[in-house]
């Protein structure tokens, strides 16, 4: 499922979200990164109509907010789920009446895969188990679009890996799409086709995952080397106590240009820090 955003604006007293244009094509895993309060959740809430009083146009699979079929969308939202006095198996009773295509069998398969007890109340589950339950319920109605807000937070690395494999399995269908917002950027490096980086309600970077890994780099150097670098080659520069960290793009060209300097690959974590803290 494809997502299109045009001239999106949502304002609060001390924060505003402004996205002039954004297109998320179908068949992609798109990672949404940024600091707390960058606007990721506000954007997700706009996409899901949880926030409805916004300016601009959002279309999912060509349908406006009034026409979007939520049967095709699976969601895991941060701190939003069914009341925790319910039992795990109660979700089957509820969701078979809510979703057209909810599959009890698929749901129980995920419960088994995640080692989740079906007779326990949700409140007795650990944070990680609860997250896994949220994922199971998001996948059990066979969606075409997954919108995940901090869906892997609270999971241990082993389960996180399992979940990422489930995402990759989900993406075997050509028209499936995942929009995932997370603080754990290492997992995005592994699976994301595209990274959208938000800061203070704006998209400041929207790049293919491969481009980020291959084209972007960081030069760590002293003041003398820093002064030798052309200003137009510097995207961001962060001055540490003893050295400089310089974010650059077009790594191959710059490796030829600055032969005496080492341009390291950059991780998404480093990229986030440099984009926000750098000048």
């Amino acid at each position: 499922m494809e997502i299109e955003i045009k001239d999106l604006e949502k304002s609060y007293d001390n924060f505003s979200l402004k996205i002039p244009e954004l297109k998320i094509p179908k068949g992609m895993i798109v990672g949404l990164i940024g600091e707390n309060g960058a606007g990721k959740t506000t954007l997700i809430k706009c996409l899901l109509n949880i926030i409805t009083n916004y300016k601009g146009i959002i279309k999912i699979e060509g349908k406006t907010k009034e026409e979007i079929d939520f049967n095709d969308i699976g969601v895991v939202l941060d701190n939003m789920f069914y009341p925790d006095v319910l039992k795990v198996k109660d979700l089957v009773t509820i969701m078979t009446s809510i979703y057209n295509n909810f599959s009890k069998e698929v749901f129980y398969q995920y419960l088994e895969k995640f080692n989740l007890p079906k007779d326990k109340q949700i409140k007795t589950l650990s944070k990680g188990m609860k997250k896994k339950l949220e994922l199971a319920s998001a996948l059990a109605h066979k969606p075409k679009l997954l919108i995940l807000d901090e869906a892997t937070s609270g999971l241990d690395p082993v389960v996180r890996r399992e979940v990422l494999d489930i995402f990759l399995e989900f993406m075997q269908q050509e028209d499936h799409t995942i929009l995932i917002s997370t603080h754990i950027t290492s997992e995005l490096e592994r699976i994301a086709d595209k990274i959208i980086f938000m800061n203070e309600g704006r998209i400041i970077l929207n790049e293919e995952g491969d481009t980020l890994i291959e084209d972007y780099g960081v030069i760590r150097c002293g003041e003398k080397e820093y002064k030798m670098i052309d200003k137009e080659d510097i995207i961001r520069c962060y001055k540490n106590k003893y050295d400089y960290e310089i974010l650059v793009k077009d790594k191959n060209r710059l490796e030829n240009k600055y032969k005496d300097m080492v341009i390291d690959k950059i991780s998404l974590d480093e990229l986030m820090v440099l984009m926000i803290k750098g000048e």
Binding site: K45, L48, N49, I50, D69, F70, N71, I73, V75, L77, N79, M80, F81, Y82, P83, D84, I98, Y99, N100, I147
Partner: peptide, 11 residues
């Protein structure tokens, strides 16, 4: 449980 917000994302 913030179900009121979650419910909006359901069909």
């Amino acid at each position: 449980s913030n179900f009121d917000s979650y419910a909006i994302s359901l069909p």
